[in-house]
Design a protein around this nucleic acid. Structure first.
Lengths: 228, 228
DNA sequence: ATCGTGATTTAGCTCAGGCTAAAAAACGAA
DNA sequence: TTCGTTTTTTAGCCTGAGCTAAATCACGAT
């Protein structure tokens, strides 16, 4: 049995576990590679390896050298807890303090590490126990259950499809500001009015109000949708 | 001219400058001693010396070896900014999220280091630009002016004096809970009903409602008062 | 004036969390 | 299969922020 006690949960550890969680999820369950994690965390690959060794030692991840990293149950709990903090804070900043949706991410990135359970619960209650953050991403429950996000991307919809914006990738403020200027917030229903023959190109969408807008390819890949 | 650029403003630096600010203030302008700072920061004296050297190098403090530490103007600005963050967060947690006054300090101690100017301003506005935190301590203005705190301590009041609670030292949750249970929140008027012949002893106070309460000596020294 | 005590600094160590350069393993193409 | 490329790890270094033990300074009492 690994030494799961010892080793304090620092911000760097929380960020690492969160990155593993998200990378594994994005990769359909495949172990997260060193380079992929290095990209997400914006650190050099050797730094990933050394952190991986330490956390494997502590029983928070499984690390098969040269093969990749997955979370143990203990690690998953910390990752999801951190994501819950992050998304609750984003929602709180947006809802209670009016911070625009393209700026909540960076702030939450720091707050997630300093939030007590008590204040987490108070924010949750003040917001009426929200299920999704301002970008449409599901907020894990207090019991740390975490709904799967929408998977279909706007760029992949066929001509004529009717759908609703489910989630927009956070992390790129400029992109969010652009998507916001198009009015494509989570929940917004629309119809695909024009699509390039091969996926990935720019898309024209018609909103409920009747307005038609062109959505650039970068944005069309960052917007995930669900059935209207 | 000292190299005031370089050296990032880490949480440890903010805490250090804050400690110098408060210690110098408490000492009536005398330079802060190494041991005093070590006590406030809960680190060992040699750690204080090495931080002092680094910050003197960076132009944030003046350090005369064996003599003590004072802030430069640049250091003062950072210290006061940090205190502003701290007290604004305390007030926000108390007012907006209902966190009891004996628990806001520890949370604010962490939040003060991660608060952006934007969110600071939004909290300030949401609270209606408060001038004092939940313990009665003055909140520095956005321009970083900082009112002097009340100086008279309840324990020093003579028999029969009428006064109002101005400020209660934060930092000791148990003490705050005790003072709260006596109803002695900032702003509360009272009269000294019974006082030990020499200062520092327990004191009996009569509240406006007529109730009389005994205030233990520890508390009587932690409560600062102003003219009623 | 000196001497002991207490405060302060120096010397040298540790750990976390980064980095670069070089070695080693995995993988795909020939 | 073999060989070059890419990915990952090892080796070794750095900085920040702490620590203890030992040396040094300041100061008050004799």
């Amino acid at each position: 049995m690994p030494d799961s006690s010892r080793s304090p949960i620092t911000p760097a550890v929380e960020d690492f576990l969160k990155a593993v969680y998200e990378t594994v999820r994005a990769g359909g369950g495949e172990p997260a590679g060193t380079t992929a994690l290095a990209d997400v965390l914006r650190i050099a690959p050797p730094s990933v390896t050394s952190m991986a060794k330490k956390l494997a030692e502590a029983g928070l991840i499984d690390h098969v050298p040269y093969r990749g990293v997955t979370l143990t149950e203990a690690g998953r709990l910390i990752a999801v807890e951190t994501i819950r903090h992050h998304r609750l804070v984003e929602t709180y900043l947006h809802q209670a303090l009016g911070v625009p949706w393209d700026r909540v991410h960076d702030e939450a990135e720091r707050w997630e590490h300093v939030l007590s359970e008590d204040v987490e619960a108070r924010m949750d209650a003040a917001l009426g126990f929200p299920t999704h953050d301002p970008h449409g991403a599901p907020i894990p429950t207090p019991a740390l259950e975490h709904a799967a996000p929408a998977t279909t991307v706007l760029a992949d919809l066929p001509l004529g499809a009717r759908a609703r914006v489910a989630e927009v990738d956070d992390g790129d403020g400029d992109l969010l500001r652009y998507v916001g200027s198009l009015g494509l917030y989570p929940g917004t229903p629309f119809e695909v009015a024009e699509a390039a023959p091969y996926a990935g190109g720019p898309v024209r969408v018609r909103l409920e109000a009747g307005a038609e807008q062109t959505v650039g390819d970068r944005a069309a890949c960052a917007i995930r949708v669900e059935a209207a």
